[in-house]
Write a protein that binds this DNA or RNA. Structure first.
Lengths: 143, 143
DNA sequence: TATTGTTATACTCTATAACTATA
DNA sequence: TATAGTTATAGAGTATAACAATA
């Protein structure tokens, strides 16, 4: 049973790594990468926050998030405003263009994956939906 | 329904990308990366083959596979032998050390993930097991 | 001193384009 | 010519270490 779980961990790791390879490699018509979209989704769900907080939510190191924010800022998708009381910090939030992109493009983005999913039966779709919830919990749970 | 599927595709993409980030970033005591392990798994399951064939199975471009094979060769985990009749081709196969690594280390490798999984109930584990099968089909199916 | 964010630097993974050797 | 593999080069995504500004 523990050994089964270990085997499942290995299989799951390979499956998600391989799917990620496809998703990243694929041209999507979207202006943003999955890394950028992930950060934007968190801002949308949890609201404006500092770069440090966003790095923590996304589970990346602060310098990595600095770069993601800079790229999104260059695209006009996020805005940075000074922290009202602490001069060291800044607040990052989605711009109007960022919100619009999430609203209009986010779901149309994964066309390849959507097409694949449409060939599955309802039971498989339900399984994947459940799995997404479980995987999200795995990653979100604090280390 | 189609719109639900589109939403699922977006959620699934974010979930697997985030989990992959964790899996890649984590130090594992293993001598091989997930990319290397993925190629080794394919060699183990499907047997010796040319670099081109391995690139096709793994759905990467040939130059990418060249590098993976070179790194595994440096580690002594795969061996390259000339093709018996076609001087352009070579045959890549796991070495004895490579087989041993897959046998002994592969499952112990994802310690972090295994620990997380052990905190799930049986129903969630079953769901993930089913999901792994579905995800694998998604990626394996020819584009 | 401690904290926040950034800069500097480097490594992995992947790609496309161009090259070499063989068929 | 066409094919298999490699080399050259580049870009994305991530990390750690060192720094600057502020608390």
């Amino acid at each position: 049973m523990t050994s089964e779980t270990r085997a499942l961990a290995g299989d799951l790791a390979l499956a998600v790594v391989r799917l990620t390879r496809h998703l990243r490699g694929r041209r999507t018509d979207s202006r943003v990468s999955l890394t950028q979209l992930s950060a934007m989704s968190t801002l949308s769900q949890d609201g404006a926050m500092t770069p440090g907080a966003l790095a923590a939510r996304e589970k990346v190191q602060p310098p990595s998030m600095t770069r993601v924010i800079a790229s999104l800022n260059d695209l006009g998708l996020v805005e940075r405003t000074p922290h009202p009381t602490d001069g060291r910090q800044i607040i990052v939030d989605l711009s109007e263009a960022g919100r619009e992109l999430l609203r209009d493009e986010a779901q149309a983005r994964e066309a390849w994956l959507t097409e694949r999913l449409q060939q599955l039966d309802q039971k498989s779709l339900d399984t994947l939906r459940d799995a997404v919830g479980i995987l999200t919990t795995l990653v979100t749970e604090d280390k």
